[in-house]
Structure formats: C-alpha cells, structure tokens
Simulated assay, not measured.
Amino acid sequence: MAKVELTPLRPWDDFFPSSERFAKPDVKDLTKWNNRVVNNLLYYQTNYLALAVVVFLIVGFLNPLGMFTAMAVVTGVFLGSVWAGENRAVINNFKRQNPTAFLIAVMFASYLLISMLGSVMVFMTAITLPLALIFAHSSFRLRNMKNKLENKIEGAGLKRSPMGILLEALGQQEENFQKIQSFLEGKLKD
C-alpha cells in the first residue's frame, strides 16, 4: 500500500486561471458533476486546505471560544458518523446510496448542536464559508490533463492523499476503484 502524502500546492495560475478554464457544471448530469468535484478535490486539496486555514484563522482570531466549540462539535459529529457508517449496516447503505444526503445530514446535525451551544455565526463563517468556496471552485473549475493523470494515479492506489482517504470514508472513491479494477481485470484476461 502506498504511503499517505500531501499533494503539492498548485500555482495560483493553475488554481485560479483565466475564465476559460471555468464552466458551469451540467446540473442535469449529476454523475459528471460529482466526478468533476471529486477529481478537483483530489487535485487541489492542498490549495483548498490553505484556503480553509486562512478563513479558519481569521474567524478564530475574531472569536476563539466560538471557534473551538464549533471545531469540537463538527469533529465529534463527523467521527461519530464515520463510526456509525462502519458499524451500522443501515447507515452504511444510506451513505453509499446517498453520499450527498449523508454529508448534508452530518452538517445539519453539527449545525443543530452548535446552535444549542450559541456559536452559530462562528460555524457559518468558519466552517461553511470555506466549504462553500471549495465546493464552488471544484464545481466550476474544468479539469486539465495533469489533473486527470494525478487522479488516475490516486484511483489506482499508487498514491494516497488525505483527501483521498476522506473521500473514501464518505464513500466517494469506491466507484473509481471498481472501474479501475474492472478495467485492469479485463486487460489481464486479454
């Protein structure tokens, strides 16, 4: 098994190039849109991490106690959902069949707990804003050849990254692994 390594920070002109490298996603083809998002999440993961850290630090500086509360609640709910997905067949099946709905349920549960603790605005700015920015970029950014090549390497298991592990925990990588495995098995038979 390949060791886990963080992808390099992509240059600004690759991460945010001119407008011809951005296009509206095809909302009628959710599979294609999901594929674009997942592949961009894998390719630009270090840039997204840097973006999230900057927003996180700014909000954390403005409200440290609320930030700690929000961070603890989201981490707890996420870890609880991953544990439940691994140990409960009903939840695992729901997660595989409806990954977006599962993620929304985790975010909603986090929101409810944080609202009870009085840190809703911190949650909205420190957690939701970076997620919204990352989702928007990964939805609109068209992939390039280097992006596609890096994702094939990750999908084949030759390289592992933190985002790949996270997406695997959310059930987003299994289809790619199955496609690659089927392709390789077909080539071996020929």
Rank of each mutant, 00 (worst) to 15 (best):
K146E: 13
K24P: 03
I127F: 13
L112Q: 15
Y111K: 08
S161Q: 07
K179C: 01
Q178L: 13
T7K: 05
E175M: 07
R141I: 09
Q172Y: 08
V55Q: 01
F108H: 07
G186L: 03
K146D: 12
A109L: 14
Q178D: 14
E168K: 10
F15I: 05
N40V: 08
T100E: 01
L184P: 00
E154N: 09
D14R: 09
T128C: 07
F140W: 14
F94E: 06
W12D: 06
G155T: 06
P25T: 05
E150P: 00
Y44F: 15
L117I: 04
N39T: 08
S19T: 12
K32Y: 04
K32Q: 15
A23Q: 14
F16Y: 08
E150A: 15
F56N: 03
F15V: 11
L129P: 10
S18E: 11
F15A: 13
K179E: 12
V74R: 03
E154R: 09
W83L: 13
S182N: 15
F22M: 05
F15L: 10
S138G: 01
N39M: 11
S81W: 12
Y111S: 10
P99D: 10
E86R: 14
G85W: 02
N87T: 14
L113P: 03
R88V: 13
Y111T: 10
T31W: 11
N92Q: 13
R36F: 11
A89T: 14
G186I: 02
G118F: 09
G171I: 11
S81M: 15
L41V: 04
K152P: 00
F15G: 03
I58S: 06
A132C: 04
L133V: 04
R160N: 13
P11A: 12
K28Q: 13
R160C: 01
V120F: 01
F135Q: 05
Q172F: 07
Q97P: 03
A84Q: 07
L49G: 09
L79Q: 10
F78P: 01
F123E: 02
H137G: 01
T7W: 00
L42H: 01
Y48I: 05
P8N: 05
G118Y: 14
G157T: 06
M124T: 13
M71V: 11
K146R: 03
D190V: 11
E174S: 12
K3L: 15
M1P: 05
F61T: 09
L166Q: 06
L129C: 06
V38R: 09
D190E: 14
N98C: 15
R21G: 05
E86P: 00
L42W: 04
N176F: 02
